[in-house]
Design a protein around this nucleic acid. Structure first.
Length: 262
DNA sequence: CCCCAGGGGTACC
DNA sequence: GGTACCCATGGG
């Protein structure tokens, strides 16, 4: 893994802070520290210089952002968001951690989601160094008690998370199979999990299964689409794909971050 | 005390 | 098909 490279069309801060990942933090010296799989990683960008534990695939650096953005519609709100956060890329995260994190996310603020994920890791994950814990494996959550999970501040989501872990642990849901399915099929498969609807399924498919068209719609996106002129229109997957194209999920992430940072 | 948060299940019409 | 209400908890 290279320790430093030159990058174009990449914005590390936007990529790590746009709300798609919950385990990165910016430290005072300009470095980002995060936990990816079983490793503690550090990254820093200074202009085009990217330093640290560089994983091109994880960071979305193995695709052409110019080609992706070229497929976007010319909506002024979207084009403004793209200019505002140019270089934001969709990460390729680990499916179980992503699914679990978004099961924990329902009607929670992002800062609280980060806290829940941290609590779960500290309580059930492998210790990596003095103050860092890996996200727990499926079997650890499958074997947890509900009081233990509720102590991690999961609230009513505790049963949802444990049921999902047990489904996966029993082999009744194979996360590894999702990336090779048709998009609609993968969406249905994830929604078999109690507590996983269209929004959480789309987050999982976009952020960890390579489905660039997956378009999660939450309250922020409803506001953004409203701003784009979708007033009164019912938001359907077909309309989203027709309008935003095969990289709708990337457009969504620009719109989401722009909506939240304004 | 109030409303809201990267929702979804259920009951009911 | 839609809508109201519930779930647990903390931020502002």
């Amino acid at each position: 893994m290279p320790r430093q490279i030159y990058v174009t069309d990449f914005n590390l801060a936007a990529t790590l802070e746009c709300g798609q990942a919950f385990r990165w933090a910016r430290t005072a010296d300009g470095w980002f520290t995060g936990i990816v799989g079983q490793r503690v990683c550090r990254l820093r960008q200074t202009g085009k210089l990217l330093e640290g534990d560089i994983d091109r695939h994880y960071l979305g650096l193995d695709v052409s952002l110019l080609d992706i953005v070229a497929t976007f519609p010319s909506d002024e709100v979207l084009q403004h968001a793209v200019r505002q956060h140019w270089g934001l890329r969709v990460l390729r995260q680990e499916p179980w951690e992503t699914l679990a994190s978004f099961i924990a996310s329902s009607t929670k603020q992002i800062i609280q989601i980060r806290q829940i994920v941290e609590n779960l890791s500290h309580r059930f994950g492998e210790q990596l160094d003095d103050n860092a814990y890996a996200f727990p494996p499926v079997v650890k959550i499958a074997g947890a008690t509900l009081p233990q999970l509720r102590a991690c501040k999961l609230g009513f989501r505790a049963e949802y998370l444990r049921a999902a872990a047990r489904l996966i642990d029993d082999g009744k849901l194979q996360l590894n199979a999702l990336p090779v399915m048709e998009y609609e099929r993968a969406l249905e498969e994830l929604q078999k999990i109690h507590g996983v609807g269209e929004k959480i399924a789309n987050c999982t498919l976009l952020f960890s299964c390579g489905f660039d068209q997956a378009f999660p719609v939450d309250v922020w996106m409803q506001r953004s689409l409203h701003r784009l002129g979708w007033r009164g229109k019912k938001i359907t997957r077909r309309k989203i794909l027709n309008h935003f194209g095969p990289y709708a999920g990337w457009a969504q992430q620009y719109l989401f971050y722009s909506e939240r940072s304004s």
